[in-house]
Structures are given as structure tokens and as C-alpha cells.
């Protein structure tokens, strides 16, 4: 009797294992489908399109021409370098501005005030990026709020144009990215035990070296993930550079858009898209290596 029940128990267990596996599989199915249909498949398609050269109407041949063109035509290459450099600068500025804000929210503010401050960082993101950008245009344009104020205050004689240059572009990019820096920084600084900072002071440290040796090393995963997100978002931004950047403001995504939409040149558009993916990944990789972080750390 007892042996029979033992047997059926083991059987039951054995039978259970594949059921659990099926359950796990079903649970993962949406993720797998999403990954495959929306991430992998389009990229494979993009890669195939990018590797063909148009010979005539509906006549294509396998070729690296689109990639070669990117590297041989200084215009595209320069645009990419400019976009990357501007994105890196925007990321650094966002970090420099965002870190004290995050520290203040995570470590200094308590309770309601803290939620309020966090909310204030969040509110601009309730409206669309387009509206936010127009907000800046209203402020910065020649007939805009700041220009009018300066004239009213007698600081300047005539209207000042603050729009359509790299500085206004930078302001827009930093503003747009701020939340994506503040959120990971606040959450990582939240996990920093206050007593570590106190211990630093107690052992003779001053504010500067506590920041450098305790706070920043602790916050490094958050800094890295914030920087990656901001860098990628800035690099892939289309609206802000187009609207605030002005006549000299070239942006690589604009090039891709132009290739696809106005040139009908899907081949080189795909190649540019792929190059953007590869080159930006390379920059992130170098950044992680320099800061001695791993990608796994940043998503902890």
C-alpha cells in the first residue's frame, strides 16, 4: 500500500516537470514573439535591403556599395561624427545636471517634498516631445519670451535670436533626456546606505572624496545605464535636432529619414540604419570598458 502511494507520488512529480516547462514556455511566448517579430525580423530585413544595390527599375544585385558610400562620402561620415560627439556632450551635460538633482531627491529630500520634486521632473514628460520642443521655441525665438524680457529689462537693444544653433539644440536635448538620467540615478542612490556616507565623514573624508570614492562608485551602474539610455535616445532623436538645430544642424537620423522618405533610397537608408546601430553599440561598448562596467551591472 505504502509502496504504491510512493510510486504514484514520484510519477506525479515526473509528470509535473514537462507541464512546468510548457507553462514557462507559454509565459515566455509573448516575449519571444515580440523579440522575434518586432526586433529580429525587421533587422534581418533591414540587413538584406542594405546589402543590395539598385541597378535599374526593380533590378538589384548583392553589393556593399551602400556601406562603402557611407565611409567614402565625407558628408555622411561627418554627420555621423557630429551626431555622436553632440550626443556624448549632451549625455555628459545631462549627467552633470542630473546627478545633483538625483542626489537631492534620493538623499536630502524626505517624504512628500521628495515625491513632489520627483513629480516635477516627471511632469514635462506628460506632454509629447513635439509640444515640449515647441515650448522651447516659444521661449528662445527672436520674438519669444526671453528675447522680449531682455529688451524690456533694457539689457539688449534689439531682439536676440537664441534659436537655430547648437547651444539651443543642446538645451533641447538635455531637457528631453533629463528624466531618463534622473530615474536610474535616484533608484541607485536610494540603495546607498546613508551610514556609508557618515562612515566616510567619520573616517576623515571630505565631501569631495566621499563623492568620488563612495557615492560615485556606488552609483556607477545607475550612471552607466542612465548614460546609455540618454546617449541612445539623443543619437536616435529626430524632432529636437530638426526643430531646434537650425540650418546647420545636421543629425544622422535626419539622414536616414531622408534616405527612406524623400530619396526613396531604402537601400542606403537601411545601411545607414545598420551603421547607426553598430557604431552606437561600439561607442557604448567603449564607454562601458572605460568605466569598467558590464552591461549586466547596468540592468541590475
Amino acid at each position: 500500500m505504502s509502496s504504491v502511494s510512493t510510486l504514484s507520488a514520484t510519477e506525479g512529480q515526473e509528470r509535473k516537470i514537462p507541464i512546468i516547462k510548457l507553462g514557462t514556455f507559454l509565459l515566455m511566448l509573448p516575449l519571444l514573439l515580440w523579440l522575434f517579430l518586432l526586433i529580429i525580423l525587421p533587422h534581418v530585413d533591414l540587413l538584406m535591403v542594405s546589402l543590395r544595390e539598385k541597378l535599374g527599375y526593380r533590378e538589384y544585385a548583392f553589393s556593399f556599395q551602400n556601406y562603402i558610400e557611407f565611409f567614402t562620402e565625407p558628408l555622411y561620415w561627418n554627420t555621423f561624427v557630429r551626431t555622436a560627439v553632440m550626443s556624448i556632450i549632451a549625455t555628459v551635460i545631462t549627467l552633470i545636471v542630473g546627478f545633483p538633482i538625483s542626489y537631492y531627491i534620493a538623499k536630502v529630500m524626505k517624504g512628500k517634498k521628495r515625491s513632489l520634486l520627483f513629480m516635477m521632473c516627471l511632469i514635462p514628460f506628460w506632454v509629447s516631445e513635439l509640444v515640449r520642443t515647441f515650448g522651447w521655441m516659444i521661449l528662445l525665438r527672436e520674438s519669444g519670451v526671453i528675447s522680449s524680457f531682455l529688451q524690456w529689462a533694457g539689457i539688449v537693444d534689439g531682439p536676440v535670436e537664441m534659436l537655430y544653433n547648437d547651444a539651443s539644440l543642446m538645451v533641447g536635448l538635455v531637457y528631453t533626456s533629463m528624466l531618463f538620467m534622473v530615474v536610474p540615478l535616484v533608484s541607485v542612490l536610494d540603495t546607498l546606505d546613508d551610514s556609508l556616507i557618515e562612515a566616510g565623514y567619520d573616517l576623515g573624508g571630505n565631501t569631495f572624496n566621499i563623492l568620488r570614492e563612495i557615492v560615485i562608485p556606488h552609483a556607477m551602474p545607475g550612471i552607466a545605464s542612465g548614460c546609455i539610455v540618454v546617449f541612445m535616445l539623443t543619437l536616435g532623436n529626430y524632432l529636437t535636432p530638426t526643430l531646434l538645430g537650425g540650418k546647420d544642424g545636421l543629425w544622422f537620423t535626419e539622414q536616414i529619414y531622408n534616405q527612406f522618405i524623400t530619396r526613396f533610397n531604402w537601400e542606403s537608408g537601411s545601411a545607414f540604419g545598420f551603421l547607426l546601430l553598430i557604431l552606437s553599440s561600439a561607442i557604448v561598448f567603449v564607454g562601458l570598458k572605460l568605466s569598467r562596467q558590464t552591461l549586466a551591472d547596468t540592468v541590475k
Binding site: D193, S195, L196, E198, A199, G200, Y201, D202, L203, G204, G205, N206, E213, I214, P217, H218
Partner: peptide, 21 residues
């Protein structure tokens, strides 16, 4: 006199060892 200038040192309740070092 701030804590970093006092000839007194503290062992914290949860020790506060620096995990990054």
C-alpha cells in the same frame, strides 16, 4: 568640530563597510 575632524571613530550598527572597496 565636524565628524571628520574629531579624534573619535565609529563602528556603525550595520558596520557600513564600503562594498566598492
Amino acid at each position: 568640530v565636524p565628524p571628520n575632524k574629531r579624534p573619535a571613530n565609529m563602528v556603525f550598527q550595520h558596520l557600513a563597510l564600503f562594498p566598492m572597496m
